[in-house]
Design a protein around this nucleic acid. Structure first.
Length: 460
RNA sequence: GGCGCGGUGGCAGAGUGGUUAUGCAGCGGACUGCAACUCCGUGUACGCCGGUUCGAUUCCGACCCGCGCCUCCA
């Protein structure tokens, strides 16, 4: 039985889906005005692993992740660039898909875009007005009347009174309560806009997720996820809008990933201390980045640093070393390792614990190979690849993993040539020459591994 | 100030009321021409103070420290 931590109840709960064997999950995706950063990668990878494991456990998962393709930041950036906002968003969506593929993130089943769901949003806003949960202000904005919704604050554990008293935002005169938030924003002259019963404008940020999630998955669905900073106000507002509009519970399980930090500070757009995924991929193989993310629990915060990535690289190398030169056996039935792996993953997707099983497998495989038990090693190699796959790891051919590099350094042919030259020197017991060749390659970032079968190489 | 999360060995990072996390780094040994890879061995780690208990890193309370949200941000 899978247990998962529910932000709403603040504890782990057994997963009981609305429909047996079926999981409907919605995750807040990107606002596409810039390249994705490591924080996005964290969420992408976390929910990718969750989806993979749910499927591995036999669930039929419908995974929906939206794209916010119209919003203030997008319009401002497009304006700065002197381009149509759609040109900007198309470009960034393409880049985002590239980053996802690099990280081995499986595409969601549906990827709705805000601009494609205007009618749904307008319908929901209309319903909210009709039910008395929203009002059109004099300036053409439409606001959600927070005080009308019983239970506002139940996700973020905030009290409405505190929110109203502590409102730091400019208290707009058009709002009835400082805590009210915009469902629809009237367009200023020259701005991109859509027609509505309340005048031309565009949707507020929160309404799109309420509209798209209920649209794709129904009024009530199983899991809603997102980054840590979306908990409030975004998710809180989604609940208010959705439940007010449909009169039904919105989501059963709320899941939030932990923050990514850099130098003890949260990495964020506003602090300007973020690393984009593509920047990081220039320095480390994508699978190392993924391994780094997966080696700690999805809810804990992680610190990005050169040291941590280097360590992830060493550790992943150990796993691939175990698989190197082995052909995984076919159709290997479940083992104790599978059971241990599942026990860890069943406990709120404890990838760090599951990772231990991967290392236990690697150790056993290495011992078996030392003892010449290739057949059994091949069986466990298959298990290692299978379990690694649930985390989106170890799916490459080991040689390909070791030999792929930044494109710098000598070519594979040159390396093979040098290895042959070194072998010749060694046969002649000219170890000075052999070591010189090895040292030269090392300086070029190529490490040689000798074995009875010969010499293999990898890039550092 | 309000709400929430966390403090584990040199570092990263799980977990548990009494028994090995795991990895990286280090040290010793094996293998090797020497290395690398790999294997074997190796570290009285659980913020502080009380309490509960036969026994607490693990439960309870106080304290100290760090972090997150409360404003656009994954």
């Amino acid at each position: 039985m899978i247990q998962l931590y529910n932000t709403l109840t603040q504890r782990k709960e057994p997963l009981k889906t609305l429909e047996p064997g079926k999981v409907r999950m919605y995750v807040c995706g990107m606002t596409v005005y810039d390249f994705c950063h490591l924080g996005h990668a964290r969420v992408l990878v976390a929910f990718d692993v969750i989806t993979r494991y749910l499927r591995h456990s036999g669930y039929d998962v419908t995974y929906v992740r939206n794209i916010t393709d119209v919003d203030d930041k997008i319009l401002r950036r497009a304006d700065e660039n002197g381009e149509a906002f759609t040109a900007l968003t198309e470009r960034m969506i393409e880049a985002m898909h590239e980053d996802e593929r690099s990280l081995g993130v499986i595409a969601p089943d549906q990827e709705p875009r805000a601009t494609g769901h205007m009618d749904d949003m307008l319908r929901m806003i209309q319903t909210l007005i009709e039910k008395g949960f929203a009002y059109a202000a004099d300036n053409g904005d439409v606001y959600f009347a927070v005080e009308q919704f019983n239970g506002y604050g139940k996700l973020s554990k905030k009290k409405l009174d505190d929110l109203i008293a502590g409102a730091r935002v400019d208290v707009s005169e058009v709002k009835r309560s400082p805590a009210d938030f915009a469902l629809w924003k009237a367009a200023k002259s020259g701005e991109v806009s859509w027609p509505s019963p309340w005048g031309d404008g565009r949707p507020g940020w929160h309404i799109e997720c309420s509209a798209m999630s209920t649209c794709c998955l129904g009024n009530t669905f199983d899991i809603h996820g997102g980054g840590p900073d979306l908990l409030f106000p975004h998710h809180e507002n989604e609940i208010a809008q959705s439940e007010a509009a449909t009169g039904q519970p919105f989501v059963n399980y709320w899941m939030h990933a932990g923050a990514v930090r850099v130098n003890k500070e949260k990495m964020s757009k506003s602090l300007g201390n973020f690393f984009t995924i593509r920047e990081i991929l220039e320095k480390y193989p994508a699978e190392v980045v993924r391994y780094f993310l997966v080696s700690s629990h999805y809810r804990s915060q992680v610190d990005y640093s050169e040291e941590n990535l280097a360590e992830a690289s060493s550790t992943l190398t150990r796993l691939y070393q175990a698989l190197r030169g082995l052909t995984p056996a076919a159709d290997v039935p479940e083992t104790d390792y599978d059971a241990r792996f599942q026990a860890a993953m069943d406990d709120d997707f404890n990838t760090a614990g599951a990772n231990t099983v991967l290392h236990a497998l690697a150790s056993e495989i290495n011992r078996l190979r030392r003892d010449g038990e290739e057949a059994e090693a091949s069986r466990l190699a298959a298990v290692l690849v299978r379990l690694g796959g649930v985390l989106g790891l170890l799916q490459q051919d080991p040689e390909a993993y070791f030999q792929s590099g930044s494109g710098e350094g000598p070519s594979a042919e040159e390396i093979e040539q040098q290895i042959e030259a070194r072998a010749e020197a060694r046969r002649n017991r000219d170890f000075a020459e052999a070591d010189r060749i090895r040292d030269t390659l090392a300086e070029q970032g190529v490490i040689l591994d000798d074995s009875r079968e010969g010499t293999s190489w990898r890039r550092a």
